[in-house]
Design a protein around this nucleic acid. Structure first.
Length: 315
DNA sequence: CGTATGCCCTGCGCGC
DNA sequence: TGCGCGCAGGGCATAC
């Protein structure tokens, strides 16, 4: 799952291979991955344009094409990389930007969740998530005060708030769990319940965790690789994510997997104190499945609703 | 407005 | 061995 560190690594690894190149032609294999405008207009506008810069905001890649901006989002399983045309095409190849030096900028995506927007000079066509994106966590804009304002008075679990890209940009499931562990804050705590000291610590942890992950070129968990096809090295440094049943690196207590905000969530039950009176119900120990013991966590005032899946409800 | 839920999609593990 | 099911998850639309 590409989050800020993975997307930043993709940006860096694509940079020299793409910037300065002109798009000879665009091959759209799966039109539904073109989100804006329609595929024909998109192709017509991009063909002949030259990549002048690659920026990143949160998990969005911003390819500057002179006055236009090609926005890419990898979502869960997207890959963007440059390769030679001889490379066999994966069956999940959806878009190919054929470059003027004969190489190809390919977009592959198993789940077809990701896609592209082409923004006009004034930003027309911008997805709402990009327009409403919160501060870059590694920039000076992101201060403890800014984080505090994002959590202030909010009755959602702090994990849900950190996943909210309007509060802070770029965090996903992996680094939220890591940052909350680093800060010793339980993910089910409500945003409004954090003390100023906890917010300050959490702010520092978000930055430390993300900066380290960028250094390590991201986490390869399931299928991530960067713009050169290389995997990230951060997985081995993860403290809690995907480590359920393994000893906490700080105190040795086995890491537990919970559901918070409908998301798989990893905590050390000793280092991250559950909120006072929290309902901690073991949903089900799924035998054999990576040894997960899945537990549901919620504040007492708002009992957890197991996934709200009312498909074949008892009838 | 803030919060919660369903949807998109497909590979995989699991249970039979 | 093979099939069908449930799960995973980022962002957006929609419902309260």
């Amino acid at each position: 799952m590409p989050e800020l560190p993975e997307v930043e690594t993709v940006r860096r690894t694509l940079y020299d291979k793409v910037v300065g190149r002109t798009v000879a032609w665009v091959e759209i294999i799966t039109p539904r991955q073109i989100w804006y405008p329609d595929a024909d207009t998109f192709r017509a506008e991009v063909e002949g344009a030259r990549f002048t810069e690659i920026d990143r905001r949160g998990k969005y890649l911003l390819f500057r094409l002179g006055p236009l901006t090609l926005v890419g989002h990898l979502r869960m399983s997207g890959h963007l990389f440059v390769c030679d045309p001889e490379r066999p095409r994966d069956k999940h190849t959806h878009v190919i930007y054929h470059l003027d030096n004969g190489t190809e900028l390919r977009y592959e995506d198993q789940r077809k969740f990701g896609g592209f927007h082409l923004l006009g000079p004034q930003g027309e066509g911008m997805p709402p998530g990009l327009a409403g994106l919160g501060p870059e966590p590694l920039s000076d804009d992101f201060t403890p005060e800014v984080l505090s304002r994002g959590l202030q008075g909010r009755r959602a679990p702090v994990k849900a708030l950190l996943l909210n890209q309007a509060i802070v940009a770029g965090l996903g499931n992996i680094y939220v769990d890591e940052a909350l562990f680093c800060a010793g804050v339980h993910p089910a705590r409500l945003g409004e319940s954090l003390t100023p000291a906890e917010v300050e610590t959490l702010h520092g942890c978000i930055r430390t965790v993300l900066a380290r992950a960028v250094e390590k070129r991201g986490t390869t968990f399931s299928l991530y690789f960067d713009g050169e096809g290389q995997e990230g090295d951060m997985y081995d440094e993860l403290q809690v994510f995907d480590r359920s049943g393994q000893p906490c690196p700080r105190c040795g207590t086995p890491i537990v997997k919970l559901a918070v905000a409908q998301r798989g969530t990893h905590v050390c039950p000793t280092c991250q104190t559950a909120p006072e009176g929290a309902v901690l119900a073991t949903r089900r120990a799924r035998p054999g499945r990576r040894g997960d013991s899945v537990t549901v966590a919620a504040e007492p005032a708002k009992p957890y609703n197991p996934r709200g899946k009312r498909k074949t409800k008892g009838d």
